[in-house]
Nucleic acid binder design. Structure first.
Lengths: 344, 344
DNA sequence: TTGAAAGCGCTAACAA
DNA sequence: TTGTTAGCGCTTTCAA
């Protein structure tokens, strides 16, 4: 079974190759009937255009990449799923690229753009310290999804889709305070994190301030530089340290659901009960955490919507219709059983 | 900045394009010094060959695909991570492709092979009912990783890497029995599952038989056809049904860790304690489940090793050095706190 | 050991 | 509205 080419189709249909090319590329200047006939023949002979030849000619691959930093973070799973679904609607092909924790995702992106002639990049997670220069060097539009877009970035290419991390964190802590909690511990990422982690910490501080509570550094358990962010392990270790050596608290705000999972264990392992002895809240909306016991109170990021918006934004930008620079989506506050109302 | 091509390099080096081609393709018939010189120039000018042109000419893309069915199953995360790392060692590029639950992964694979001229495919999960014809139609080597290779498959192309699902399940149930459990419930996938799920059920049955215990269908809670396999939700629902309507049991064997998570909740929600009131064991070794409380006793699949072996097997097959057909790796039995010893 | 030249399958400019 | 044709950047004969 030899591969059927554009020439074969042309010969069979008794037309020139360019006519066939026009037929499959929706070129306006072509007779509707001829087009019909050609398309039918293509289908009959099971013809698919050779991508390499196309790209070679067009000197471009209509490809965008999803660049995930921390692919083993289950939070990204649903995004990836939606990505694969959503991309099919567009006439772009795509590659998924996983960047390791210690890798520089911007360098990796630059390499990819060059090697694969990418049209755009969708960053998921990561992008800790994106400087204008580094991002500009990409030379293609990109969208930072779930990542906080930094104040020091003003690049024209820079697009972002996220929730209001600071505001949502603030809302969460405010909720805890309204529930009567005054000693609220925080388990963030590393102190050096200036991305989403930073914003959520800010939200925590603001909520305290809003309510006239003092910020107590002792209640904040930053990860050590050698601990991996957003893992149950780190959450566990931080909570264990807090419970064993820290000041008393009535609630723990883990900055991600993955970490909240570890917090649960640290608490339960010590014979304490959630929420009777200590309340726990998370952030992100990992579906799995609904199945913790008790169900975790958290902020649910609208993964599907975020992904769709990101893709939309990216493709508009690629096609030069970009007007919007960033989209902030509403998150869902999910009240669950992990918080005790101290007012009662 | 115009893209530098092979012609540019040729001109700069004062050689023909074919010589440049030889230099970069490690062609034997070339003077070592010329080669050196050319390679140096390529580096200096930051030349990278145009993949499209290469593929067009060679009429092939040196690409393999990782085809994941159920990308939102966190169990596959670590595999994907290792895949991305491992593939870099080979001179193959790769694509990751996520197949939805309801999609036919073999059809998707066939399409991919055709469209992208794939050299091989690595299936992760899925491949429920692979018939010889369907697999043969792929026309390229493929490896089924973590999927049970079925008895009715004898294709020459068929390669598989897995653990001994039946044996390991048997070991797990045998362990429970040794711990004094006699009424052991099972939460498998759907009754129609003839893949790994089936094998694990078999292992369960054999262990009972080995120990002279009778198989009680009432203790087995198959998922309904509309429930998604390997999710906490399904595990929760099955366990809830079992606890509310089923016969008494002292232990529950969830066929995957993801489902065990839901089982935990169903139990704890009812005010029962693990393992005091009821023991739970899982299967797969989801890292996250170590952070459940109490820690889950499970069978850990050696993800990294499995992935490496799969890739190795696949690439050998592609390059025609295939001798091995399948590899069965040892799993690790992880004893943890979720099982009560009834003998004491 | 090298270079010239013929395409790989496709698109697009040009001519008809 | 259609066909002819010149490449895109590369690999690979073939001849030197």
């Amino acid at each position: 079974m030899k591969k059927v080419t554009i020439k074969d189709i042309a010969r069979i249909c008794n037309v020139g190759v360019s006519t066939v090319s026009r037929a499959m590329n929706d070129d306006p200047g072509i007779n509707a009937q001829t087009k019909e006939r050609i398309l039918a023949t293509m289908k009959e002979y099971n013809y698919t255009p050779n991508g390499s030849a196309r790209n070679l000619k067009r000197n471009e691959a209509n490809t965008i990449a999803l660049l995930v930093k921390g692919i083993d973070n289950p939070f990204f799973n649903s995004f990836i799923k939606y990505y694969e679904e959503a991309i099919k609607k567009y006439r772009y092909s795509s590659v998924l690229y996983a960047v390791r924790e210690e890798e520089d995702e911007l360098e990796a992106a630059r390499q990819l753009v060059k090697d694969q002639k990418l049209k755009g990049i969708l960053f998921l997670g990561g992008v800790a310290q994106p400087t204008d220069e580094a991002l500009e060097a990409l030379e293609v539009p990109y969208v930072l999804c779930t990542a906080a877009i930094n104040m020091n970035v003003s690049s024209d290419h820079a697009l972002a889709v996220s929730i209001d991390d600071e505001g949502e964190a603030r809302r969460m802590v405010d909720y805890l305070i309204k529930m009567g909690h005054k000693r609220i511990a925080l388990i963030p990422t590393r102190a050096s994190d200036i991305s989403v982690g930073f914003l959520r910490v800010n939200g925590y501080k603001k909520a305290l301030e809003d309510n006239g509570l003092e910020f107590d550094p002792q209640l904040v358990r930053y990860l050590k530089e050698n601990q991996e962010a957003y893992t149950p392990k780190s959450g566990y270790e931080a909570a264990a340290d807090l419970l064993d050596n820290g000041p008393d608290c009535t609630a723990i705000f883990a900055i991600s659901d993955t970490m909240a999972l570890g917090v649960y264990k640290a608490i339960q392992e010590r014979g304490l009960r959630i929420p009777e002895d200590i309340s726990v809240v998370g952030f992100d909306g990992l579906s799995m955490c609904e199945y913790l016991h008790p169900g975790l109170t958290t902020i649910i990021q609208p993964a599907e919507q975020m992904l769709k918006s990101s893709l939309d934004l990216l493709i508009r930008a690629i096609e030069g219709e970009g007007q919007q620079k960033s989209i902030v989506l509403a998150a869902e506050f999910k009240e669950n059983e992990s918080v005790k109302n101290l007012n009662i």
